[in-house]
Write a protein that binds this DNA or RNA. Structure first.
Length: 867
RNA sequence: GCCGCCUUAGCUCAGUGGUAGAGCGCAUCCUUGGUAAGGCUGAGGUCGACAGUUCAAUCCUGUCAGGCGGCACCA
C-alpha cells in the first residue's frame, strides 16, 4: 500500500519505451508486408524560443492521445517532431546579446527537447530535424528551383510592405491592421524587386478543394475562402473623350455589378493608378493629392474614419451603352490599386462607398434597381445605397430583368462590343517570399551582369549560410559579408553576385510534413515514403494559422505533386484547431502592476493577498498566458510538483479541446487526485489469477460500468472530446469504489480485475506512465504501450431494464422500470397504473399517450368536461 | 459594417427534442497507521431575454441583449 510516486515511475517508463524503441517507425522494410493501415499524426512544429509553455503541452498531448489511441487500435502510426528554426528572434538575440543565431537556435532546441521528451510523447525522435539544418534547407532550395523552372517562382518589382523595425519585407498576410505581425510597427509601402511564388495560379483549386476537406473545421475553410476572395464580374474599358494624357485612350475597370452600368455617374481610379501618376506629373494639385493618399493609405487612420476623398482629373470617358453620355474621371482614396484593375465606375445608388463619395462631391445618384414592391416614380436613394434584390429600370435594354439576368445581359453586350469580358478576380495575391534577413534559407539564385538571373546548379546545392557574420547594425549581414555573395556566374563564368535575400520562414513550414516521411532522403521527399504516409491524417495546431501556414502548405503540396515528389494535393486530411490556455490575471491595487500567481497567497473565504505586503488583490480577468501579464506557469514546475501525467490529464480535461482552457492550481490538483484514486484501486487489488468474470453474480454492475466506459472513451477520443473521456474516468472511479476489493467474492474480484485491466489501457493515451505502472501492478504481460485497445462488449454496455420517466402534460410526474424494448401498449399500461401518475390524472381524461422507447412516456390529458 | 462562435450551479465548463451533470469551491459529518492526506452526505439552477414549432424546448426556428474571434473602403 502506498501512494503513486510519479517522480520515480515516470522516468522509469520513459526509459523502458526508449530501450524498446516503442515509437520508432519501421519504415520501408515492413511497408509492403505489414497489413496495418497507416495513420499520420502531426502537431504544428514549434519555434525554438527556448522554453516550452503550457500551450505546447496541450497541443502535443492532444496529438499524443490520438497517436497512442490509433497505435493501440492497430494502426501503423507516424508521429514525428521537428523545429521551425529559422526566423527573426535568433537575429534579435544576436544583436542584443551578441550570440550567433545558429548557436542560439540549437541551444534553444536542446533546451526544449528535454521537457518535451519528459512529456512522454510517443514520438519517433529518429526523424527529428530543424529547418535550419543545411540538409533540410538545401532540399528546400531544390524545391524552389523546381518551382522556378515551372514558372511558379518569379522576380518582379512591386510595392511591398516594409517593416521599418525588422527592416524586412512582409507578405500581405503578415500585415495586420497596417502593422507588422511580429514587430507591431507601422508598415510602409516601398518599391523593391522581390521573389514571388505564384500561389494565384492555384486560386481556383485552393478554393474549390476546400469542400473536399470534410475533416477541417468549417470556420477555417470559411476563413480561407474569404481570404482567397473569388469574385465574378466584368472587366471592360471606358474610352476617354477628353483631357487624357497621351497613351490613355482607355481606362480598364472591374465590376461585380455590371447590371448597374446605367446608374454610373463617375469613373474612379486609385492614387497609384498609372493615369493618376501621369496626371500628377503635369499637375501639382493632383501630385499633392496623390502624395496625400499614399500617406493616408499607410497611416490607416483615414480608413478608420472612412472619409472618402477625391480629386477631379479633368478627364472624361464615354459610357459604353450611351455614347451621348460622358462621365468624369476622379482619383479617389478608397480605390485600391492592387485589386481588380485599380479603377472602377461609381454607381452611387447601389454602392455605399460610391454614394458617400457622390454626396460629398455632389455627383448624380441615379437608381437603376427597383426594390420589390417599390414604385418607380417615387423610389429614391437617400443616405443608404440600395444593394438588395429587385428589377432593373432606367436601364434601356436591361429594363425589367432581375439582377443576375441583367449582369449576364450587360456582360454579353460588352463582349459583343469588344470592350471587355466576364472575369474572375481574386483577393489573393502572389506570395512574396524574399526577406532581407540572414537567418533564413538562402534563395539559390545568382545575379550575373551579362546573363541576368541564373539558378544555382543542382550540383552546387546547398547554398550554405556563412557562419562568420556581424550583427553590429540592423539590416542584412549577408549584404555586408566580404566574400559570400561574390561568385562566378554558372553560365558564363564572369564575376556575379548571389541573391542575398532569404526565404520567408513560412516557406520552411510549407513542406516539413512531407519531409518527415523520409527525413534522411537525398531528395526533398522519397516518393515511396510519401505515398505511404501522406496525407497527414490528423493535423493539430492553433487557429492563428488558419490562413497563412495552412494556405501556403496547401499550395506547396500542389506544386510538389506536379513535380512528382508527392502523390497528393491536400497535405492535411484532418485538421483540428485547439484553443489556448488561459489564466487569471492579478494586479496590485496600489500601483497597478501585474502580479504573478507565485507572489500571491489564497485568502480564506476567497480572493488573494500579496505575500510580501499583505495587500488584498482581486483577480482581474482571464487571459491568454503572456509574460507581460505575468499570468504564466512554467510546465517544468508543474511536472516537478504534480508529475507529467497530472499535467497532461489536466490540459485534456475541463474544456473541450477546441475551446480555451483555464489553467488553475485547483484543476491540476483535481487531476492529481484522480491519478491517486486510480492508483489506489490498482494497489488494493489482490494478486490473481482470477477465473473468468462471472456474469451471474455481484460483479455484473461493475462489468457494465467497465464496458460502458470502454465504449464511451473510444467514442470520445475518436471525436476529439478528450474532456468527456476524462469525465467518464471520474465516473468509473465511483463504480470501482462501489465494488471494493476488500471482502469481495471471487467473481467480484474477477470483475474488478477486468475493470482495472480495461482502465489501464483506456487511460494510457492520457496518462501513459501511470498506465504502465498500473498494468505492471496487475501482473499483465508486456507494456500497455503494446497492448491492444480494449473492446466494449455490446451485450454489457446496455442495461436490460430501462428506467422511463412518466410525464403528464409534459411535466415529470413519475418513474417506471420496464424491460428494454417492451411493447408500447404494455409500457402504457404500466405507466397509467403508476400511483404517482394516477394522482396527477385525477379529474383528467387521457387523450393520448406518447411512448418513446426506453426513455419516456408522456400522457396528454385534458380536464373532464363538466357534463 | 459583414461572417462565425459563446451565454447552463458561487467559479470553470460538460450535456441532451423526453428524469439537468462534472471538477473545483462551500457546508455537515467520518477517518487520523494512505495524513503537507482520504472519504460520506448535502445545499446550490427561470439552462441570457422574448416569441414560435411540438404531446413535450435548456436543446429546433426567429428576434433581441451581452461577450469573444475573424474579415473589412476587395468595386
Amino acid at each position: 500500500m502506498g501512494r503513486y510516486n510519479p517522480k520515480v515511475a515516470e522516468p522509469r517508463w520513459r526509459q523502458r519505451w526508449d530501450e524498446a524503441e516503442s515509437f520508432v517507425v519501421r519504415d520501408t522494410a515492413d511497408s509492403a508486408a505489414a497489413p496495418r493501415p497507416k495513420y499520420y499524426v502531426l502537431e504544428m512544429f514549434p519555434y525554438p524560443s527556448g522554453r516550452i509553455h503550457i500551450g505546447h503541452v496541450r497541443n502535443y498531448t492532444m496529438g499524443d492521445v490520438v497517436a497512442r489511441f490509433k497505435r493501440a487500435q492497430g494502426f501503423d502510426v507516424l508521429h514525428p517532431m521537428g523545429w521551425d528554426a529559422f526566423g527573426m528572434p535568433a537575429e534579435n538575440a544576436a544583436m542584443e546579446k551578441g550570440v550567433h543565431p545558429k548557436g542560439w537556435t540549437y541551444d534553444n532546441i536542446a533546451a526544449m527537447r528535454t521537457p518535451l521528451k519528459q512529456l512522454g510523447l510517443s514520438i519517433d525522435w529518429t526523424r527529428e530535424f530543424a529547418t535550419c539544418d543545411p540538409d533540410y534547407y538545401g532540399q528546400e532550395q531544390k524545391i524552389f528551383l523546381d518551382l522556378y523552372r515551372r514558372g511558379l517562382a518569379y522576380r518582379r518589382e512591386g510595392v511591398v510592405n516594409w517593416d521599418p523595425v525588422d527592416m524586412t519585407v512582409l507578405a500581405n498576410e503578415q500585415v495586420i491592421d497596417g502593422r507588422g505581425w511580429r514587430s507591431g510597427a507601422l508598415v510602409e509601402k516601398r518599391k523593391l524587386t522581390q521573389w514571388f511564388l505564384r500561389i494565384t495560379a492555384y486560386a481556383d483549386d485552393l478554393i474549390d478543394s476546400l469542400q473536399t476537406l470534410d475533416r477541417w473545421p468549417e470556420k477555417v475553410r470559411l476563413m480561407q475562402e474569404n481570404w482567397i476572395g473569388r469574385s465574378q464580374g466584368l472587366k471592360f474599358h471606358f474610352t476617354t473623350t477628353s483631357g487624357a494624357p497621351a497613351g490613355f485612350d482607355a481606362i480598364e475597370v472591374y465590376t461585380t455589378r455590371p447590371d448597374t452600368l446605367f446608374g454610373a455617374s463617375f469613373v474612379g481610379v486609385a492614387a497609384d493608378h498609372p493615369l493618376a501618376v501621369a496626371l500628377a506629373a503635369q499637375n501639382p494639385d493632383i501630385a499633392e493629392f496623390v502624395a496625400k493618399c499614399r500617406q493616408g493609405g499607410a497611416s490607416e487612420v483615414e480608413i478608420e474614419v472612412g472619409e472618402k476623398l477625391g480629386m477631379p482629373t479633368g478627364v472624361s470617358v464615354r459610357h459604353p451603352f450611351q455614347p451621348e453620355i460622358e462621365l468624369p474621371v476622379w482619383i479617389a482614396n478608397f480605390i485600391l490599386m492592387d485589386y481588380g484593375t485599380g479603377a472602377i465606375f461609381g454607381c452611387p445608388a447601389h454602392d455605399q462607398r460610391d454614394l458617400d463619395f457622390a454626396r460629398k462631391y455632389d455627383l448624380p445618384v441615379r437608381p437603376v434597381v427597383l426594390p420589390p414592391g417599390a414604385e418607380a416614380s417615387r423610389f429614391a436613394v437617400a443616405d443608404e445605397a440600395y444593394v438588395g434584390p429587385g428589377k432593373l429600370y432606367n436601364s434601356q435594354f436591361l429594363d425589367g430583368l432581375g439582377i443576375e439576368e441583367a449582369k449576364r445581359a450587360a456582360i454579353a453586350r460588352i463582349e459583343a462590343q469588344g470592350q471587355g469580358q466576364g472575369a474572375t478576380v481574386y483577393r489573393l495575391r502572389d506570395w512574396g517570399v524574399s526577406r532581407q534577413r540572414y537567418w533564413g534559407c538562402p534563395i539559390p539564385m545568382i545575379h550575373c551582369p551579362s546573363c541576368g538571373v541564373v539558378p544555382v546548379p543542382d550540383s552546387d546545392l546547398p547554398v550554405l549560410l556563412p557562419d562568420d557574420v556581424q550583427f553590429d547594425r540592423p539590416g542584412n549581414p549577408l549584404l555586408r559579408h566580404p566574400t559570400w555573395r561574390h561568385v562566378a556566374c554558372p553560365t558564363c563564368g564572369s564575376p556575379a553576385e548571389r541573391e542575398t535575400d532569404t526565404f520567408d520562414t513560412f516557406v520552411d513550414s510549407s513542406w516539413y510534413f512531407a519531409r518527415f516521411a523520409s527525413p534522411h532522403s537525398k531528395d526533398p521527399v522519397d516518393r515511396a515514403s510519401a505515398d505511404k504516409w501522406l496525407p497527414v491524417d490528423q493535423y493539430i495546431g492553433g487557429v492563428e494559422h488558419a490562413v497563412l501556414h495552412l494556405l501556403y502548405a496547401r499550395f506547396f503540396t500542389r506544386a510538389l505533386k506536379e513535380q512528382g515528389w508527392v502523390g497528393v494535393k491536400e497535405p492535411f486530411a484532418g485538421l483540428f484547431t485547439q484553443g489556448m490556455v488561459t489564466h487569471e490575471t492579478y494586479r496590485a491595487p496600489s500601483d497597478g502592476r501585474w502580479l504573478s500567481p507565485a507572489e500571491l497567497e489564497a485568502r480564506p473565504g476567497g480572493g488573494f493577498v500579496v505575500v510580501e505586503t499583505g495587500e488584498a488583490v482581486e483577480a482581474c480577468g482571464v487571459e491568454k498566458m503572456s509574460k507581460s501579464k505575468k499570468n504564466v506557469v512554467a510546465p517544468e514546475d508543474i511536472f516537478e510538483q504534480y508529475g507529467v501525467d497530472a499535467t497532461r490529464l489536466f490540459v485534456m480535461s475541463d474544456s473541450p479541446p477546441e475551446r480555451d482552457v483555464q489553467w488553475s492550481t485547483a484543476g491540476v490538483e483535481g487531476a492529481w487526485r484522480l491519478i491517486q484514486r486510480i492508483w489506489a484501486e490498482f494497489d488494493a487489488q489482490p494478486d490473481g489469477p482470477f477465473r473468468a468474470p462471472d456474469l451471474s453474480a455481484d460483479g455484473l454492475g461493475l462489468r457494465r460500468a467497465t464496458h460502458r466506459l470502454a465504449a464511451q472513451v473510444t467514442e470520445a477520443v475518436s471525436a476529439f472530446r478528450f474532456n468527456l473521456a476524462v469525465a467518464r474516468m471520474h465516473e468509473m472511479m465511483a463504480a470501482l469504489r462501489a465494488h471494493p476489493a476488500e471482502g469481495a467474492s471471487p467473481s467480484h474480484l474477477a470483475a474488478r480485475h477486468e475493470a482495472l485491466s480495461y482502465l489501464a489501457r483506456l487511460i494510457a493515451p492520457f496518462t501513459p506512465h501511470l498506465a504502465e505502472e498500473c498494468w505492471a501492478r496487475l501482473g499483465e504481460q508486456g507494456m500497455v504501450v503494446d497492448a491492444p485497445w480494449p473492446e466494449a462488449d455490446p451485450s454489457l454496455t446496455e442495461d436490460d431494464e430501462a428506467v422511463l420517466a412518466v410525464q403528464v402534460n409534459g411535466k415529470r410526474r413519475g418513474e417506471i422500470r420496464a424491460a428494454r424494448g417492451l411493447a408500447d401498449a404494455q409500457i402504457e399500461a404500466v405507466a397509467l397504473a403508476d400511483a404517482d401518475v394516477q394522482r396527477h390524472l385525477e379529474g383528467l381524461v387521457v387523450r393520448k399517450v406518447i411512448v418513446v422507447k426506453d426513455r419516456i412516456v408522456n400522457i396528454v390529458a385534458v380536464p373532464k368536461s363538466p357534463d
